[in-house]
Design a protein around this nucleic acid. Structure first.
Lengths: 232, 232
DNA sequence: CAAAACTGTTTCCGTAGGACACAGTGTACG
DNA sequence: CGTACACTGTGTCCTACGGAAACAGTTTTG
């Protein structure tokens, strides 16, 4: 084996070997098993042993298909992120498209919270992940925004989606805002003089409190100012 | 030892023991050693063994001060995040204040990139981290925004700061936009028909390309619409 | 001076990722 | 048709990690 890299595994056509015994496993089956384990028990539960047991194989058998765990996680990630949403012909306009895009990405991350941990830092980007970027870019193409501005918009939206998804995933029961209130509220008790405005803000029940919608609207409002801007 | 929790270690006054030999270590020294190791070699390099070696102590000696590794990481995190920036009297207005706040948080995360990994999910929040929240809240108090809106604004800004910091940290050399271009550009080569708008956007050199400034301005613009909004 | 409290150390264990050599299996070629 | 080769899954071994438990030395308190 020529020590296939993660990029190769993610992007290259998978060719069945010509000689030797029939493989009992496949890259997709291995990745799917890993996804199931991660969905059920978190990323920490994904060990070579666990994945192998689920496939009724020895741990070392997996190394015939995957060079190491990082490559396995890369395959799992691209599988879990899934194909980007089909461009919905009914929704027109960049803003509804981006809004739907962000919400669908949010749903994907909620379905596979562990993917939030695996999609950070230096990593191999798979076809599906790149497809999501393409979808966001397509929504903004033709609005008059420059290329870098389009990419930066997608990045900003991603940051917001990820942050809220992380908060929701950390508190599976109940709204994230409520859980935050309990945690921080407990810490603030008896220390109101040290954190006065924070105490006041948390006590104020006025206004809407949907962190996801709020941030999404803020960002899209900011982008709208650029879209409506006169060409220079 | 009554199995002190991370919250206790972070918030409670540290009282020196009355009997027994003088401790050769302290919580601060241990946390500082961990921070140095993490700064140099990343979070993965922080093992009990490494921390102990740096302090010329056995690994198990650390467990006299810290119940486990998660608590150590919590202490390291609050130490690395550091005290929030002193409210600068010269900068007035919520927008310059928030702008400076975001940039200073960005710098902190760049100085300790591993803190990006430790400040996610269920965790014990320390005094410094809460102080940063207080600072952001203070900047927005009096603008007419409701409490939840203030908190959501801070959250949205945090998301943006974190995302860009992650990208920069992943590419220590060179601008993040450039590194992203090389990585994605390599993947796009030969697949332009599959990712048409993404290819076009990456080829476009027009406009500014500073992802941090761009997103920050978008978010603050969106907030400004709320600040200028008539009270209801 | 002895008991108690506290320190740092030694030893041990379970689990993780992974290297390596081995034996079985199926195809291609002489 | 048989043998060499490529490929598979397996058993064994190693290192490193977090942590439990019991131990020995040190300082204060009665």
């Amino acid at each position: 084996m020529a020590a296939k890299t993660a990029i190769t595994l993610l992007w290259e056509q998978r060719t069945a070997p010509k000689r030797g015994p029939k493989p009992t496993l496949s890259l997709d089956a291995i990745a799917a098993a890993g996804v199931e384990i991660a969905d059920a028990g978190g990323l920490a539960a994904v060990t070579m042993q666990q994945v192998a047991e689920r496939l009724d194989v020895t741990k070392m058998a997996l190394y015939r298909y995957v060079p190491g765990k990082v490559e396995l996680v890369a395959l799992m990630t691209d599988l879990a992120i899934g194909e980007p949403p089909r461009p919905d012909a009914t929704t027109t306009g960049w803003r509804p498209k981006l809004d739907a895009w962000a919400r669908q990405m949010f749903d994907r991350f909620l379905a596979h919270p562990w993917a939030l941990e695996t999609t950070v830092g230096h990593r191999a980007i798979g076809p599906n992940e790149l497809g999501w970027m393409e979808a966001a870019t397509a929504a903004l193409t033709g609005t008059g925004l420059a290329g870098p501005e389009i990419l930066d918009t997608a990045a900003t939206l991603t940051g917001h989606v990820r942050l809220i998804a992380q908060q929701v995933a950390a508190a599976p029961s109940g709204a994230p805002e409520q859980v935050l209130g309990e945690t921080v509220g407990g810490l603030l008790a008896g220390r109101e003089d040290r954190f006065p405005t924070l105490t006041a803000a948390m006590a104020d029940k006025g206004g809407e409190d949907n962190a996801f919608d709020f941030g999404l609207r803020c960002i899209l409002d900011g982008v709208q100012l650029l879209v409506g801007r006169p060409r220079q």
